[in-house]
Nucleic acid binder design. Structure first.
Lengths: 123, 123
DNA sequence: CTGTATCCCCTTTGATACTG
DNA sequence: CAGTATCAAAGGGGATACAG
């Protein structure tokens, strides 16, 4: 997220990529798009392999970018709910377009390199 | 590009992201979208900060994914031309959508956090 | 001119323990 | 429950030298 030279032309594209790229952001976004609101622990259960640290940091980035809302209930034990923000819903069409293109691309790669080929591409 | 858990749901989205994310791929793609064909050295001049190693590896990935074509002229000194493939042109609308969203998002961030704020976000 | 081959660094991600 | 703190590992990216 720091050093992107990208010659003045595509800093906008990079801005978009910063939101949705990363190992966990896509799946977090999909869960929040499908679920209205989710608690921290519900997200953890939905994405079992993620650590609290990563879940926290990715949620914080999305919140900073106003894609999601974070609602804290002042109670013990704590309860925090995450949901897409109004603004964040504007990201949905883009995500859907990307998923569609990606779906077709995976098919395209199969046609090129065969059925059960995992992307090997060593070096 | 390796370990993406992404729970079966958004491997398609990840597939799309794999193509266009990375420090150099967006700018490489934009240059190739604007120029029909470019030689290796022309790309280097267009993106002065990139090293040969990175330029080579990113071009190879794009070629592997059939986004760009690589044409080698068997001559001395060597001459290699890169261009978007027919298939690769199908990526253009998506890239444009992302740039548009990113443009608006940068504006959105300005409204939220002020004019000359670089994204600070420590921690 | 168009690359490869090494070696090094830095950022991102992960494991684990601790806290209000 | 919802995090933070600390330390370690991994992978992407960079500097430089060499090669066909």
């Amino acid at each position: 997220m720091a050093n992107q030279p990208t010659g003045e032309n595509c800093k906008e594209l990079q801005a978009a990529l910063d939101i949705i790229s990363g190992k966990w952001k896509p799946i977090i976004l999909f869960h929040l798009m499908e679920n209205e609101t989710l608690r921290f622990s519900e997200l953890q259960r939905a994405i079992p392999e993620i650590t609290k640290k990563m879940l926290t940091s990715q949620l914080r980035e999305l919140e900073y970018n106003n894609i999601i809302d974070r609602k804290v209930y002042q109670q013990v034990p704590p309860k925090v709910e995450y949901s897409m923000s109004d603004y964040g819903h504007g990201l949905k069409p883009l995500l859907v377009s990307m998923r569609t293109w990606g779906f077709n691309h995976l098919e395209h790669l199969e046609n090129l390199y065969g059925e059960d080929n995992e992307k090997v591409m060593e070096n």
